[in-house]
Simulated assay, not measured.
Amino acid sequence: MLGLQYFSFTDLWSPLFMAFMLLIIGGYFVVIGPLSEKFEGAEHVSLGQKVLFVSGIAILYLAQGGPVSLLGHTMFTFHMLSMALSYLVAPPLVMLGIPVWLWRAALRVNPFRRLSFLASPIVAAVLFNGLFSLYHIPVIHDYVMLHFTAHRLYYLILLITSVLMWWTLIRPLPEEKGISSLKKIGYIFLNMVLLTPACALIIFAKEPMYATFSDPNAWAKAMGYCTSGDPSALLRAYGGPKFFNILDTTVDQQVGGIVMKFTQEFIFASMMGYVFYNWYKNENNNDDEQVLPRMEPADQNISQR
């Protein structure tokens, strides 16, 4: 299916990365379990939070080390799916799965306190969406995909900036002063708008933009970072990415842009609906809880008569 049968278990599942992610999950359960008594204000972590954390880590693994990652090197559609899962789906799940007392302990020893301004709403939104859009400029995208160190570093920076972008909406620390519901809606809308130009550029392109999905030699070199063996053997065996792509290269590129934009729109539209619902509910509760005016002494005398 989609050519996965041509690759080994190691190529498909990246055992080293799998082990690393399992260590993170194991460390999480050790910290919230046996070691929790060492943290000030530690409380029981609900099953829901545990499920959210493990789900977020699992999604991040599938997107960056599992079959979705490998398919992201053969079809642009899966590349964009991997990006959406990595930066729009996994981070909020992981953040919601971390208990408040653990966030407090982690931030207490944060060596980057002077860079806290990066988490401010406007800066975080511009940083993440700007870096994401910059990455999909063809010359930059192909350079990052063809240079292993740049690839890992850029993806790590994107992950960090996505966490900063989500911080305003998740607000892990309840004691932090958050923005109003109206500003949250504006913030969500800002993120939706900022990503639109990059997606539109990809969706409406009339020809392939990225060498790593159209040039056999560039594709083979990029594949060499996620598969074992000699990349040139891929060329001899399959001839290039078209062997695996079930769509025309340009159509695949357009579908990828649609997948990214649709995923973002769905997630942020859902978040906007949630924020608006809570805003509406709180406004109604405030109206219902208005205190009736007290009776003046004269009124009390009249009532006694």
Score class of each variant (00 low, 15 high):
230 D>Y: 03
65 G>S: 03
206 K>S: 13
234 L>Y: 06
214 S>T: 10
220 A>F: 06
19 A>L: 14
198 A>E: 14
115 L>N: 05
105 A>F: 01
46 S>T: 15
258 I>T: 02
10 T>N: 11
2 L>S: 09
56 G>E: 15
256 G>F: 09
109 V>P: 00
296 E>H: 14
66 G>V: 00
303 S>N: 10
66 G>P: 00
196 T>E: 15
288 D>Q: 12
294 R>A: 13
112 F>W: 15
98 I>D: 02
287 D>H: 07
184 K>V: 11
191 N>E: 10
185 I>D: 09
163 V>P: 00
154 Y>W: 14
150 A>I: 02
262 F>Q: 08
150 A>Q: 02
40 E>L: 01
244 F>Y: 04
294 R>V: 10
1 M>N: 06
150 A>N: 05
249 T>Q: 15
41 G>P: 00
219 W>E: 04
161 T>P: 01
81 L>H: 05
187 Y>M: 06
93 L>K: 09
70 L>Y: 04
149 T>S: 09
212 T>W: 04
136 H>N: 14
102 L>A: 11
229 G>H: 06
261 K>F: 13
86 S>W: 01
6 Y>M: 06
192 M>V: 03
252 D>M: 09
277 Y>E: 11
30 V>C: 03
223 M>W: 07
129 N>H: 14
229 G>F: 05
302 I>A: 10
161 T>N: 10
254 Q>D: 04
292 L>G: 02
279 W>Y: 09
158 L>C: 04
69 S>F: 12
59 I>P: 01
173 L>I: 13
294 R>S: 10
247 L>N: 08
179 I>P: 00
292 L>P: 03
106 A>T: 09
185 I>E: 15
225 Y>M: 12
202 I>M: 14
238 Y>I: 02
248 D>R: 10
215 D>V: 05
251 V>G: 00
61 Y>H: 04
84 A>D: 02
21 M>F: 09
159 L>I: 01
14 S>F: 13
294 R>K: 14
269 A>Y: 06
276 F>G: 00
175 E>I: 05
234 L>P: 00
247 L>E: 02
92 P>I: 15
114 R>C: 07
186 G>Y: 15
252 D>W: 11
206 K>C: 01
230 D>A: 00
3 G>D: 03
34 P>G: 06
197 P>S: 10
56 G>F: 14
168 T>W: 13
202 I>A: 01
70 L>C: 01
21 M>I: 10
159 L>F: 15
142 D>V: 04
156 L>I: 04
273 G>K: 04
